[in-house]
């Protein structure tokens, strides 16, 4: 059996091949301005990388914000279902999934069988999402993949009270002008994202095991802040951004 999952997110596209037992191949690309074309391209690249033909793939499930843009899909599934499926495949004891993607964040409560019980999504702005971290990265001129590193030894933190991405940017500039060290500001940013995300916990509950997925889970600084703010240890998959695509592939395998 060979099935595929494709997660067309707001910032990146993840494609993944699964053979019923393990992940065969994954490819992550930027969504860019042409999600339709780029999703198609990403999928073709995936096939090429695994040297398989389109006909060899029995079922394709697409998910994510652009799930309907990918025309080759046999069916679509919501990203809530896919993240839940992917997370409980990787961590069978998962009861809560925190997913922070490019433009939204969500918290999903699972039952003992890994089925979705409850879920909450953030409101309609970039606050506390990957896009927010990107904006901060640009305004303080620290590359995305160096942000967590910069705060490894930092214990102090400052308050970033604005949760609006635009207001927070001017708040950060103010802090910089007052001479607040960069690493302390960054810790403040991570903590504010953590608090924002955990505000959803009241409606879903934060039952262990908690799995942290999505592109932002690659940032160890946010993971650490979430753990400190919640007092709960998080399980982060080795490639957290492909969890949705993995879940989509698992849904495809089930329907097969």
């Amino acid at each position: 059996m060979l099935v595929a999952g494709i997660d067309v997110g707001s910032r990146t596209i993840e494609t993944l091949l699964y053979d019923g037992a393990q992940v065969v191949e994954t490819i992550v690309t930027d969504t860019g301005s042409y999600p339709k074309e780029n999703a198609k391209k990403a999928f073709n690249n995936l096939l090429a990388a695994a040297s398989v033909k389109r006909e060899d793939v029995e079922t394709i499930v697409s998910t994510g914000y652009g799930r309907n843009y990918f025309e080759g899909a046999d069916r679509v599934a919501s990203e809530i279902m896919c993240h839940a499926r992917g997370a409980s495949y990787l961590f069978p004891n998962a009861r809560t999934v925190i997913d922070i993607g490019g433009q939204d964040s969500k918290m999903i409560g699972l039952d003992a069988e890994g089925k979705v019980q409850k879920f909450v999504m953030n409101d309609r702005c970039a606050a506390g999402t990957g896009k927010f971290i990107e904006l901060v990265s640009q305004s303080i001129e620290v590359p995305l993949d160096k942000m967590a590193e910069a705060t490894v030894d930092t214990t102090e933190s400052c308050d970033i009270s604005s949760m609006c991405a635009v207001f927070a940017e001017s708040e950060i500039i103010g802090l910089l002008q007052r001479g607040t060290p960069l690493d302390i500001i960054l810790r403040g940013v991570f903590k504010s994202i953590a608090r924002r995300t955990l505000s959803m916990a009241g409606r879903v509950g934060l039952n262990a095991d908690v799995v942290f997925t999505g592109g932002v889970a690659q940032n160890a600084g946010v993971t650490r802040a979430l753990e400190e703010e919640s007092g709960v240890q998080l399980h982060v998959p080795p490639e957290p951004q492909i969890t949705g695509a993995l879940g989509a592939a698992l849904v495809a395998a089930e329907r097969n």
């Binding site: 919501s78 809530i80 089925k115």
Partner: peptide, 17 residues
């Protein structure tokens, strides 16, 4: 109408459960 697509995701996910 700007939140239509976000709502669609939530509704689809609810129906899946």
């Amino acid at each position: 109408l700007e939140d239509t697509e976000q709502l669609r995701v939530r509704i689809e996910a609810f129906l899946e459960t």
